[in-house]
């Protein structure tokens, strides 16, 4: 029994570590490809990024080239990176010259703040809606949830954010549209991301509730003479939790993708915003750092859901 749990624990950690390793290699390889095929003069673009296009000349570009060692063959740059990556040194930003690790660490707090607020909001909206519709399938709450989730599917994060921005900020003047620093600024990005996630959350909760309520063991418990609320507490909650947690992986993808989009839209200074910025400037070390961080974050959260699953389901997570 306990040894089986330990084996499951070891299996989860091993699989996820391997996944993290593969994804790191994958990102490094993609970034290598990116460097290889980038056309034009990178030094010129970086200089322009620093000083503005109007103030760049060949001398400024040469200075940048010298400073960053861009004249080396690209495979050498990549080999250097890979070595650094193994020691968790992510290099320096080609644009600002600052250490990538320090820059990302600076952005991470904002991203976590946004993600946490959004997940809380998504659960706050999605759980009650899903429960109400799962317990009375076909009822008005179910129809409402269905309509709500379809509407949100057709309204991707950046459209939803755009509409909220135009509605709450421009038309009504309730919230500032972009920027970071004041407490009120979190409202729009978190609302955008949280509402976007809540549609799928509600559907997943709804389907899990329905599956559990229709399960043999649930009916059998009812037939033992237990009151409906006791059956729900004793046999419903935990089993619903098992399915909802099992679906968390899908939600996490939406969360990470949403973070990138919403941060860029509202200029929220998180990792996603930094990533899009880096892509715009082809700042490869920064691209690699941000992507790696988001991927590791994703793997880490998936590991957490696996462990949660192991904790609440005695059978442990299904073999992938």
């Amino acid at each position: 029994m306990d040894s089986a749990r330990q084996r499951a624990l070891a299996r989860i950690c091993g699989q996820r570590l391997l996944q993290a390793a593969i994804v790191s290699l994958l990102v490094a390889a993609l970034c290598f490809l990116l460097v290889q095929q980038l056309p034009g003069d990178m030094a010129f673009r970086i200089a322009a990024g620093r000083y503005g296009y109007d103030y760049v000349d060949a001398a400024a570009a040469d200075a940048v080239r010298q400073e960053l060692g861009l004249a080396r063959p690209s495979w050498q740059q990549f080999a250097g990176w890979l070595g650094q990556l193994a020691q968790l040194q992510l290099g320096q930003s080609l644009v600002t010259g600052g250490a990538v690790l320090a820059e990302i660490a600076h952005h991470l707090g904002a991203t976590v703040q946004l993600a946490a607020a959004s997940v809380a909001l998504a659960l706050g909206v999605g759980l009650p809606l899903g429960l109400a519709s799962g317990l009375a399938p076909g009822g008005w709450a179910d129809r409402l949830t269905l309509g709500y989730s379809v509407l949100l599917r057709a309204l991707p994060p950046f459209l939803l954010g755009l509409m909220l921005m135009l509605g709450l900020s421009v038309q009504l003047g309730w919230a500032p549209a972009a920027g970071h620093g004041e407490g009120g600024n979190l409202l729009l990005p978190a609302l955008t991301l949280g509402l976007g996630l809540s549609g799928l959350t509600a559907r997943i909760v709804r389907d899990s509730v329905l599956a559990v309520v229709q399960a043999d063991y649930y009916r059998f418990a009812r037939s033992k003479g237990l009151a409906p609320w006791r059956v729900f507490l004793r046999h419903g909650l935990r089993n619903i939790g098992v399915t909802v947690v099992a679906y968390a992986g899908v939600q996490l993808i939406l969360l990470i993708e949403g973070v990138v989009v919403v941060e860029s839209l509202f200029a929220w200074p998180g990792v996603g915003h930094a990533l899009v910025h880096a892509i715009f400037w082809r700042d490869v070390p920064m691209i690699q750092g941000c992507t790696l961080l988001l991927a590791w974050l994703f793997v880490l959260m998936n590991t957490a859901t696996d462990l949660l699953c192991l904790a609440i389901d005695p059978r442990g997570p299904a073999e992938s």
């Binding site: 391997l18 970034c31 990116l34 990138v260 892509i279 490869v284 988001l294 991927a295 992938s320």
Partner: peptide
């Protein structure tokens, strides 16, 4: 499966973003 697991740890939009950096 290992390859798929690795790609899976990279939300789709991130892959597309990296490629968009190459795409110009």
């Amino acid at each position: 499966r290992g390859l798929a697991d690795g790609v899976l740890a990279l939300p789709g939009l991130l892959i597309v973003l990296i490629f968009s950096a190459m795409a110009q």
